[in-house]
Amino acid sequence: MFISFYRVLKFSFQDVYRNIWLSLVTVIILILALFTVNMLLIVKVIGDTAVDAIKEKIDINLFLNNDSEENEILALKAQIGGFSEVREVTYVSKSEALEKFKENHKDNPEILEALRELGKNPLTPTLVIKPNNLDEFDMLINRINSIDSDMIESRNFTNYKVLLDKINVITKKVTDAGLFLSSIFVFISILVVFNSIRISIYTHKREIAIMKLVGASNWFIQLPFLISGWFYTLIGVGFVMIVFYPFLTLLQPYLEAFFVGYNIDLVSYFYTNAFTIFGAEFMVAGFINMLASLLAVRKYSKV
């Protein structure tokens, strides 16, 4: 049994090796397919990171009058905090706002100098409101707008929703294009794998005929070709793994430049999830290739 399995493996390697050019083409197509699939993943990661980053940043600032009473502010805070659309309200007092401002601009001496020259704290107390759910953002704005309080000096609502929608649209378009490209490549790989197995069966016609004649079992005859399918996958996924990290490292500076301030690290994402990502790709691609091989074997090496 063990010796048979060893021989099956050997036959499989011989099969890959003997049609080396065909095997190369097969592996290259597989690599292209896997690469597009991984690019798709990158786009998705970038899109998700961008959306998450923006969602995290979304808040509504209610700038209050400078001379508002502390307890009135807290009452307003409680009122807004009671809205179902609101996740959290934070009260930033004048002095806290100043601290934060200084902290934010600590690298900019000119601003700090200007602040010092002013002599007094120019900042107003603020209520920072974080929405519960982006879908309710418009409703929340309406509700806040309807609060009639002369404490409120200005209401600053950046319309993040439009921005998010834009990001979602772009991500969706890129994903769709990627999906289309990937399916083409996956389809081509299936055809190519099917065809190379068909051709290797053809090249081994004599051997197969003799094996059948002398009573080799069907699994012994067919298994090498199925293993070849897995072998192509192994090489393809392995190659993509090796090439992908340098590629990501090259890509990283551009991403960082583009997403200033956002935490986006594709390399570490692909590191921490390497097992899941490439493992899944290996299993799925290997399985698809095995099915393609099985189809070819069934069709072209009848008993």
Binding site: M1, I3, S4, R7, I210, V214, G215, A216, F220, I221
Partner: peptide, 11 residues
């Protein structure tokens, strides 16, 4: 030998 190999014959 091939005929024996493919039928699981030991070396």
């Amino acid at each position: 030998a091939f005929a024996m190999q493919v039928c699981g014959g030991s070396p």
